[in-house]
Simulated assay, not measured.
Amino acid sequence: MTGSVIDLNADLGEGFGRWTLTDDEALLSVVTSANVACGFHAGDPATMRRVCALAAERGVRIGAQVSYRDLAGFGRRAMDVPPDELADEVAYQIGALQVFARAAGSRVSYVKPHGALYNRVVADSEQAEAVVAGVLRAGAVCDGPLPVLGLPGSKLLAVAEGVGLPAVTEAFADRAYTWAGTLVPRRDADAVVHDPETVIARAVGMARDGLVTAIGGEPVAVDARSLCVHGDTPGATQLAWRVRGALASAGIRVEAFT
């Protein structure tokens, strides 16, 4: 639903051991929902615990960002995982994050796939069904059905709706779009929008007008309840603040969708 209210989310906890990628503490002062890496593409127990504690302290909703098991490739490499195995791995990641969310006095509030898995379940029904099966398996430890965050028109959201899970549409302020409303693949040089002014203008346009300019220059309709600003880009926190300020100036209230 595009309109006067939108959620602002970012991918957080994307470190491992002594290596850090995102400025989690700073971004948690801006966003309303945190997609927390669950250890398969990034993240480790200590990072997950720390991010959950900070999110709970600031009233930010905690989401499980589930991925293919691909630490070396940051979850961005295409993989063929049998559906039952993928469902188990999705449930495992959600359950692991729920431990730390509960310890912080909060809970896992939604699920969002990451990287190659996110793109795969746009059109692959079998993999989408596996992700949803994993979300359902984790429901027993998550106080019932979890909303699923994904691309409008994706197989993932269709499957989620088909089994009664809340399906939440998402748009990306800093990613390039194709004419079909899908994301330009990361392997392409122009997949990420780097100019801050362009990112801000796109964010407002998607939230207020339901439109974004595709890579070929044509307007594309987007219907999003949540807007993502990636946390692993240079200057991500400052950009997120500017996006939030621009949304407020356009009369759009930023609040969590859960």
Rank of each mutant, 00 (worst) to 15 (best):
R58F: 06
L136M: 15
V131P: 05
V121S: 02
V121A: 05
A130S: 09
V60Y: 02
G73N: 07
M79E: 12
A123K: 12
V131H: 05
R69K: 14
M79V: 10
R61H: 15
R102K: 13
V135P: 04
E85D: 15
V108E: 09
E129Y: 04
A128V: 06
L54S: 01
V66W: 01
A116M: 08
K112M: 12
S67R: 02
G73A: 11
A64V: 10
L146T: 03
A133E: 15
A78Y: 09
A128K: 04
G63A: 02
A56F: 03
Y118N: 04
H114F: 00
R137G: 09
V60I: 11
V132L: 12
R107Y: 11
A87F: 03
A78N: 14
A103M: 06
Y118Q: 07
H114K: 04
H114L: 00
V111G: 05
A101I: 04
E85F: 08
D84R: 14
E89M: 12
R61I: 07
A96L: 09
R137T: 09
A130L: 08
D70Y: 06
A78C: 09
V81Y: 00
V121L: 10
L86C: 03
V122E: 06
R102H: 14
A140R: 12
A72C: 05
V60W: 01
E85P: 00
A78P: 08
Y68D: 00
V132A: 13
L86K: 03
G63V: 06
V122Q: 04
A104T: 10
F74D: 08
V135T: 10
F74Q: 06
H114Y: 04
E126W: 13
G105A: 10
A56M: 04
V90F: 06
A101S: 01
L54A: 13
D124C: 00
V121Y: 02
I62N: 10
A138Y: 10
E57P: 01
A123Y: 09
E85N: 05
V108T: 08
A72Q: 14
L146A: 06
G95P: 09
L97P: 02
G59K: 14
P82L: 07
Q98F: 08
V135G: 04
I62A: 13
E85Y: 09
A130R: 02
E129F: 01
D124K: 00
A55V: 06
R58K: 15
E129V: 12
G73P: 10
N119E: 11
V99W: 03
R107A: 15
P82I: 13
D88V: 10
E89F: 02
E126V: 15
G63I: 00
V81D: 03
D88N: 12
A140Y: 01
M79C: 09
A56D: 08
G115L: 06
A123C: 13
G134I: 05
L54C: 03
A72G: 04
L86H: 05
A96K: 09
D80R: 14
Q98H: 11
G59R: 11
L71Q: 07
S125K: 09
L146R: 01
Y110T: 05
R137S: 14
D80M: 10
C142L: 11
A91H: 12
V60L: 08
R69T: 15
A55G: 05
P82C: 07
G134V: 08
V111N: 06
D80F: 05
M79H: 14
